[in-house]
Design a binder for these strands. Sequence first.
DNA 1: AAAAGTTTGGAACGGCGCTCCAACCGTGTC
DNA 2: GACACGGTTGGAGCGCCGTTCCAAACTTTT
Lengths: 227, 227
Amino acid sequence: MATRTRRSDALSRERIVDAAVEVLDASGESGLTFRVLTERLATGAGAIYWHVANRDELLGAATDGVVAAALADRPSAGSPEEELRAVGLRLFDAIDDHPWLGTQLGVQMSRSPTGPTTPRLVEAFGRPIRDLGVPEPAWFTATTTVLSYVLGAAGQNAVNGRAGGGGLGRAEFLDATAAAWEALDEDGYPFVRRVARQMRGHDDQEQFLAGLDLVVGGIRAAHPPER
Amino acid sequence: MATRTRRSDALSRERIVDAAVEVLDASGESGLTFRVLTERLATGAGAIYWHVANRDELLGAATDGVVAAALADRPSAGSPEEELRAVGLRLFDAIDDHPWLGTQLGVQMSRSPTGPTTPRLVEAFGRPIRDLGVPEPAWFTATTTVLSYVLGAAGQNAVNGRAGGGGLGRAEFLDATAAAWEALDEDGYPFVRRVARQMRGHDDQEQFLAGLDLVVGGIRAAHPPER
DNA sequence: AAAAGTTTGGAACGGCGCTCCAACCGTGTC
DNA sequence: GACACGGTTGGAGCGCCGTTCCAAACTTTT
């Protein structure tokens, strides 16, 4: 085995992934460069490449690491509905803490769906859906639907997290977007102009949970619990 | 005014965006480089930069162009439910024709939500939701929920389109993924192992529509039409 | 026909991901 | 205790990227 008596400053895949997450948190996806990484780890590019195949794999490992941590030791609270909200909220909070995660989830799951992240999420959302009383033939559809919603919402809320774009706070950003929507022409965008109001001052997490409830409600409506 | 008597080989933002879409279709997002673009348009980088600010803006313009084309001249068919399916299907087909679109939609909408694509999609999905009889205060939540689902499903199905990864057909790819899921350990992934079967031989479009129906059903259940 | 303004093409720059390889380190052999 | 060996390191260097800059070319105005 490799890891017996190693130098205290030994490099490892884990140390590299941890450093990558820190850099991503601080500087976003485009900020994760090998130059920054080698400086932070006080090493060279070659050493990193001995542990990690390439940048994409590193991004995938960082994504999976954060997701795994977010879903770890769930206390499996109460009813299936509550469990679904709990899992969704864990993920939502993780994206809030790591803004790059929202976009990366979508990218990684389509770039390498064979990776560990997809089954992790399917398991986390699938179990409570099973417990909801959904008949087995509908499990796959119901689970991927919830997952699609969560990933879509994640991608849209990715920008929210910390800075809403250019140093503005979230409220100012929502206000600016609402104003832009209201400035569209009435003929082409009557609906957008009407809903623009509702964007101001809405709470992202509340919104996310309300959407999740709608989706879960649709699943329940399609598969009413037998009695 | 600029465009009066112009040379026949004149460059224009439109010609550039069209070329970008062709390159993206042929080589994916990473294949869109300025070297390829200058060769295809028989020009230099500077000429392109005079019409387009940078690569991100070009990607955004390509995305919006394809979305706008996909949603153009909708015949506004039948019931609100049918309309929602029709709009969803337009988008699904567009992603099928332009595999890069699935990922880009998520990325672009979070990178520049002020762009034209977001209101375009909100209007397209919002109108039939309004016509569904959803009360106005719930319009925003209902619309963003549908939009999140569609964008999430788009991102996941992005890989599907043409090549399922490495020259394999879609069926072989699904089969390989199902096998990988079934090889997970029973303790950690009982649900994933059970649903793996359902992944083989499923139809992506059917799946997408079934999920959309679930979401729309949830909206209808939450806001039953007054009578 | 000259001047002014618009549009073009390509050379050049800094930074990126990645490869390659000489040196280094801990371990097993005699 | 010397030695050889394979796992590990660090950094120089390569080719490509997005972007900038600017002289030349083309159009329009004077």
